[in-house]
């Protein structure tokens, strides 16, 4: 086995960050997320590799909050597209968990398949290497296994690291992973170590059959009750590693400008507001229903997997205490006989 001793971790991160922009899970101030290792400041930042996960998801590395699409010059005489903003800079995400790589898997389905390839996403994604961190100790709100994910085998990983206590087992999975292994060869040791043992999930969630059941539950009264206290604040969509809805807007000054995209949330009132005044989802109940149907049913119908990866962030962050696992449970138990 290839082993990276924890005493050599900093050296490894330094080495990797010379190859590419290296993103690591850090606690910074009062929040936590994925930040460039180069920006690490001892004293105020803390590496979170020993923690369960971080509050803000790593989707920003391949799908940033704001991204320019193309720039143009235009006036009544003529219009010219100047440049398209694909970014091919190499990046590495280190320490990403299975729930978050499964979310990236969902992103790959959305942006790279179904007739069109989103070139901005493709450029970033192709040049991003994933060093995933196998998880053996699920947290209180974790339910990735219920959503079909194996926390000890993160999907789409180029390398998987497994924490044995004083070291990481370093397991290359792809050619990209092999390249990194070669780059780190001076720091890796060749010896045996015991794979950690998987501990039980504290939170029992049963998603079996829920997607099927939801197909006939669009008009069910359960949505009235579940959506009552939702403020449609949108925090869930921002902390979710698999939420990807975006808006396209333009910034222009004089004859120049650029079109950009930015995160949008299906929870906002103007999400489906049409210029003529019609809004199919004007009510918060309708938007709430659409969000959970998308997560638990529509995405599965379209891409074969649910859009929720069981990371538990929305459960922690929701100001109204809305819990997707409770929703799954209530759907499973719902009475769908006529008149329900």
């Amino acid at each position: 086995m290839q082993i990276l001793s924890k005493s050599k971790l900093n050296a490894a991160l330094d080495l990797l960050s010379r190859q590419a922009e290296l993103f690591v899970p850090l606690a910074r101030g009062e929040e936590s997320g994925y930040y460039p290792w180069k920006s690490y400041q001892a004293g105020s930042d803390q590496l979170m590799l020993d923690a369960l996960n971080v509050m803000l998801p790593p989707k920003g590395v391949v799908f940033p909050q704001t991204e320019r699409i193309y720039s143009f010059t235009g006036n009544d005489k003529g219009v010219e597209i100047k440049e398209s903003f694909e970014n091919h800079d190499p990046r590495i995400i280190f320490g990403i968990r299975a729930c978050d790589t499964a979310a990236l898997d969902c992103f790959d389905d959305v942006f790279l398949t179904m007739g069109y390839v989103d070139s901005l996403y493709a450029a970033r994604r192709e040049n991003t290497t994933i060093i995933a961190h196998a998880c053996y100790r699920p947290g209180d709100n974790c339910f990735c296994a219920a959503m079909g994910i194996d926390p000890t085998e993160p999907t789409k990983a180029d390398v998987i690291i497994r924490d044995t206590g004083d070291a990481y087992i370093w397991e290359s999975k792809t050619d990209k992973g092999d390249k990194l292994t070669a780059a780190l060869s001076s720091l890796l040791e060749d010896r045996e170590a015991a794979t950690p043992e998987m501990q039980a999930f504290k939170h029992q969630v049963d998603y079996e059959g829920v997607a099927e059941k939801l197909k006939d539950m669009f008009e069910h009264s359960i949505w009235d009750e579940l959506s009552q206290t939702c403020q449609t604040c949108g925090i869930c969509t921002y902390v979710c590693p698999s939420c990807y809805c975006f808006d396209i807007q333009v910034k222009s000054w004089g004859d120049e400008g650029y079109r950009f995209r930015c995160y949008d949330s299906c929870m906002y009132p103007e999400y489906t507001q049409m210029a003529g005044g019609h809004n199919p989802r004007g009510d918060s109940r309708e938007r709430f229903r659409n969000r959970f149907l998308h997560k638990l049913e529509f995405f599965k119908e379209r891409y074969g997997k649910p859009l929720c990866t069981g990371c538990g962030r929305c459960i922690v962050a929701c100001p109204a205490g809305i819990d997707i696992t409770q929703i799954i449970k209530q759907i499973k138990e719902a009475d769908t006989s006529a008149g329900a």
Partner: peptide, 14 residues
């Protein structure tokens, strides 16, 4: 604050 309590137990913060 329930949010602070949830965050401190979440495993997402030191």
């Amino acid at each position: 604050d329930p949010l602070a309590a949830a965050k401190s137990r979440s495993g997402f913060l030191p």
